[in-house]
Amino acid sequence: MSKEEIKNKLIEELGVHFESEYDLPPLAARIFASLVLTEEDGLTFEDCINRRGASKSSISTSLNLLLQREFVKYFTKSGDRRRYFEIADKNIFFLKKLNRSLKHLEREGKILQKVAEYNAQFRPEKHFENTNKREVYTKCVSDMTTILKTTIEALEKQQK
């Protein structure tokens, strides 16, 4: 397989991942994947049309969605009227993703605690019945939270 074929296959796989991970429509997810893997200094609107083979209106709609969600940004080059699209905040992409995961786990831990307290007070047999499962799950959430915080701190130190 050629480099281009491998890249196209990876764009497709990454696109499917972005669809589910970020709730993106297929075309927007593929454009975002193309931006992640491009070796160029940004992609133009025309580049996106040529690479995705979609209509101008579909590409425009997808790029606008990615801009609104702050997944991408654009810049211009002196003497060139075209806009060049690139991933927004390339340097903190992983930090943002990890922080979203951390917030999700923290919410999970809080709601788990509230359910446990409710069951302890109003459904003691259910509380007792689920003790082992709850403790294992709570420990997992706690461990994952600790790992995420440690990783975020390490990445933040690299940013400085």
Rank of each mutant, 00 (worst) to 15 (best):
M1H: 12
K3G: 09
E4G: 01
I6S: 15
K7H: 08
N8F: 03
N8V: 05
E12V: 12
E13K: 12
L14C: 02
L14I: 04
V16A: 10
V16T: 14
H17T: 06
H17E: 12
H17P: 01
H17W: 05
E19W: 01
E19R: 09
E21T: 07
E21A: 10
D23L: 06
D23V: 09
D23N: 15
D23P: 05
L24E: 01
L24M: 12
P25E: 15
P26V: 11
P26T: 15
A28S: 14
A29Q: 08
R30W: 05
R30Y: 10
I31V: 14
F32D: 00
S34G: 09
L37H: 09
T38W: 05
T38Y: 03
T38P: 04
E39N: 02
E40S: 08
E40V: 07
D41S: 12
T44I: 08
F45K: 10
E46R: 08
E46A: 09
D47W: 05
I49Y: 02
R51F: 14
R52I: 02
R52G: 00
G53S: 05
G53K: 03
S55A: 01
S55N: 00
K56L: 01
S60H: 00
T61K: 15
S62M: 01
S62W: 00
S62T: 04
N64S: 13
L65P: 00
L65C: 04
L67S: 07
L67V: 04
L67R: 07
Q68N: 10
Q68K: 11
R69S: 04
E70F: 02
F71E: 07
F71D: 05
V72A: 02
V72Q: 00
K73M: 12
Y74N: 06
F75L: 15
F75Q: 15
T76Q: 14
T76D: 03
K77V: 14
K77R: 14
S78K: 15
S78F: 05
G79A: 03
G79S: 09
Y84H: 09
F85A: 06
E86F: 09
E86H: 11
I87H: 03
D89M: 07
N91G: 13
F93L: 11
K96M: 10
K96F: 12
K96G: 09
K97L: 12
L98I: 05
L98P: 00
L98N: 03
N99F: 03
N99R: 15
R100T: 02
R100H: 04
H104P: 02
L105H: 04
E106F: 06
E106V: 10
E108Q: 13
I111W: 15
I111L: 13
L112C: 07
L112W: 04
K114G: 03
V115F: 04
E117K: 08
E117S: 13
N119T: 10
N119S: 13
A120G: 10
R123H: 14
P124F: 01
P124G: 02
P124V: 01
H127T: 05
F128V: 15
E129K: 13
E129W: 08
N130A: 08
N132V: 13
N132L: 13
K133P: 00
R134G: 05
Y137A: 15
Y137M: 13
T138C: 08
C140G: 13
C140Y: 07
V141H: 04
T145G: 14
K149L: 05
K149Y: 01
T150I: 04
I152W: 02
E153D: 15
E153L: 09
A154G: 06
L155V: 08
E156L: 09
K157N: 13
Q158A: 15
K160A: 05
